[in-house]
Amino acid sequence: MRTFPHYLLLRPIRALATPFALTILLSGCQSMGTDGLVASNAPPEISGPAASAIAGDMVSRLAEQIGPGKATVALKPETSPFGQALEAALKGWGYAVVTDQKTDSGTKVIPLAYVIVPFDGQVLARLSTDSVELGRAYTVTANGAMPASALSLMRRG
């Protein structure tokens, strides 16, 4: 009598783990700041090349949603490699970036928050504005990072 190899049951479960974790990251309990966005957070152990790759990909996807370089983006100051890479990527796409939250009264400002969470050998990344949230899982390598999931997009009404 042959027995069923139970490890085959774990493959579909592992395949669903990353999207499930990404869903939880995007829709679960969130610590909201005073402006309604989650507080920005990124672990300092993410390397510069990985931070740049993730920030570059996420900002390009953000630009698809809000238009490239059409507004000033407000970031809370943060000195992690990802925070610095995100600011550089935003400027590379033509966005003006303010970190002191002070702008001219006529300037359209988009508050932007981010969260980077290591999970199960990957990194889950989320960018949040008042109108859209983007999320994606990445596999981090020595030379950077590569997307490991489809982009998750949530629009706010």
Rank of each mutant, 00 (worst) to 15 (best):
A89D: 10
S128F: 00
V132I: 13
A125N: 06
V109L: 09
A88C: 00
W93Q: 15
F119Q: 08
S131G: 09
A89S: 14
V97C: 08
A88E: 14
A89G: 10
Q122A: 11
Y114W: 14
A96T: 14
V117N: 13
P111T: 03
A88H: 12
I110N: 05
D104R: 14
L127Q: 07
T107R: 13
G135W: 01
A89E: 03
K102C: 00
A89C: 06
S128G: 00
E133T: 12
V98Q: 12
R126G: 05
T103A: 15
S131D: 12
L112V: 02
T103E: 05
T107Q: 14
D130M: 05
T103P: 03
G92S: 10
G92E: 04
L134V: 03
T99R: 15
D120I: 04
L90Q: 09
V97E: 07
G92W: 01
L90S: 09
A89K: 08
G92P: 03
S105D: 13
G94K: 04
L134D: 02
T107N: 06
L90R: 11
T99M: 13
K108A: 12
S128K: 02
I116H: 03
D120R: 10
I110T: 09
T99K: 15
I110R: 03
P118W: 02
S131E: 12
V98S: 07
V98Y: 03
V97Y: 06
P111F: 00
Q122H: 15
A125P: 08
V117E: 13
S105V: 13
K102D: 08
P111N: 10
S105C: 01
P111M: 03
D100W: 02
Y114R: 11
L112T: 07
L90C: 07
G94C: 06
G94D: 02
L90P: 10
V97H: 10
I110F: 01
G106K: 11
I116V: 12
D120F: 12
P111Y: 02
Q101A: 15
T99G: 13
V123F: 01
W93C: 01
L124E: 09
K108S: 13
D120N: 14
D104E: 12
K91A: 12
I116E: 12
V97S: 11
V109I: 11
T129M: 04
L124Y: 01
S128C: 02
Y95E: 07
W93Y: 15
S105I: 12
V98K: 09
L134H: 03
A89Q: 05
D100Q: 11
F119M: 08
V97R: 11
Y95L: 07
A113R: 07
P118F: 06
L112S: 07
K102H: 12
K102V: 15
G135Q: 01
D130P: 00
V97L: 05
A125W: 03
K102T: 15
A88T: 15
T103M: 07
V109K: 07
V98A: 10
A88W: 00
L112C: 04
V117K: 15
K102R: 14
G94R: 04
Y95Q: 05
V115T: 14
L124T: 10
G94Q: 04
G94Y: 02
A89R: 05
S105N: 06
D120G: 07
T99C: 01
D130F: 00
A113N: 04
L127D: 04
D120A: 14
V98G: 11
T103Y: 04
A125R: 06
V115G: 05
V117Q: 14
D100A: 10
D104Y: 06
G121D: 02
V115F: 02
P118Y: 09
Y114Q: 07
V132H: 05
D100N: 15
S105T: 14
